[in-house]
């Protein structure tokens, strides 16, 4: 088996915060990402799903070192980049890129589209064959934009077109890794399909590895090779897409899948919904033992005291004391 492009080991990101207790300030930590580990192979798409606030976005940005990790290891192409200084990080940045959720905030409103897509070449001081301008026109064509719109400003484009601009910028330097941070959740459903297919096509053509962050399970099912389910900063279950969707092992995964509506009315009528009780616990003070124990219907005494490890069950990896 070939070595993975990206290895994440026990990655943690705690954000410091404080709370006023009388006149004193109590220092607290928000455990946004609390010890996640996974490997990403070349050309593979790993879906990262979970409720909002479970640390998906923080995980994605920490992997790219846009946020400094608190602890753990990030190994990119065999090189440990966890502690790499920003200056030494710069050349590596050409190989890892990000696509954003909000296409309105991702593009500088004062720059033309041509300038936005040319920025990676400028910053990394790369001159492609035939010049930057020609390369940018080629990129625009590739993502389905009219190269004649080179001199237009972002406000002249629709949400889907802007997302294409963001994608063109991300693939400009032919990166090996792209973190797609909910790239379609701000778009209309019809546009979602176009953008997902575009990402899929580009990935197949260039052999890019993608960490695809989303909360829409059907989108993740469509695009991912493997899926990691996150809850409160931890990975609950990690499995091949088909295994995860046909035979979920973790109760949380089961509950998530039961929330997906089915297009067939007969199936929809018979769909058994598992409704989780209670709210998402605060990541400042997560429950002891298994973080899911406050909402799990299979909870036992051991779940409240002992944290389950991510272990292999069947073909999947599951962090549960009582996997199905």
């Amino acid at each position: 088996m070939s070595s993975p492009l990206l290895s994440v080991r026990n990655l943690q990101k705690y954000f410091p915060t404080s709370r006023n207790v009388g006149f004193r300030k109590e220092k607290l930590q928000v455990k946004a990402v609390d010890g996640i580990s996974f490997d990403l192979m070349k050309g593979e798409t790993l879906g990262l799903v979970g409720e909002s606030g479970c640390g998906k976005t923080t995980a994605g940005r920490t992997i790219l070192k846009l946020i400094e990790p608190t602890a753990g290891e990030i190994i990119f192409e065999g090189q440990d980049i966890t502690k790499l200084r920003p200056g030494l990080m710069t050349p590596l940045r050409a190989q890892m890129q990000i696509i954003f959720q909000d296409p309105f905030s991702a593009l500088n409103p004062r720059q033309t589209v041509g300038k936005i897509i040319a920025a990676p070449f400028e910053i990394q001081k790369v001159t492609p064959e035939g010049g930057v301008k020609k390369e940018v026109a080629g990129l625009m064509q590739r993502v389905g934009l009219n190269p004649e719109h080179y001199n237009r400003y972002p406000h002249e484009f629709s949400g889907g077109q802007r997302q294409r601009i963001g994608i063109a910028r991300a693939i400009a330097l032919k990166p090996k890794l792209i973190v797609a941070d909910e790239p379609v959740s701000a778009l209309d459903v019809s546009i979602q399909a176009q953008v997902i297919n575009l990402i899929d096509d580009l990935q197949k053509a260039d052999g890019i590895s993608i960490v695809f962050i989303a909360h829409d399970l059907s989108v993740v099912q469509h695009i991912s090779d493997r899926v990691a389910v996150m809850y409160l900063g931890k990975i609950m279950e990690l499995a091949k897409t088909e295994d995860l969707f046909t035979a979920p092992h973790h109760p949380y995964t089961t509950a998530l899948l039961s929330a997906v509506p089915q297009p067939d009315p007969r199936g929809e009528r018979n769909r058994e919904r598992i409704i989780l009780k209670g709210d998402l616990p605060s990541p400042i003070n997560p429950p002891a033992g298994c973080v899911f124990n406050t909402r799990c219907w299979k909870v036992q005494e051991v779940c409240r005291s002992k944290t389950p490890e991510l272990l292999t069950v069947g073909k999947s990896q599951v962090a549960c004391h009582f996997p199905e």
Partner: peptide, 26 residues
């Protein structure tokens, strides 16, 4: 805090570039 500044950081842009090219025009 806008994403286009994060995008510039993700491309490896220097502080100088972020301040003069991304922030100042706005």
């Amino acid at each position: 805090e806008r994403d286009f500044v994060t995008a510039a950081q993700a491309m490896g842009a220097s502080r100088k570039r972020i301040i003069f090219k991304e922030l100042m025009p706005n």
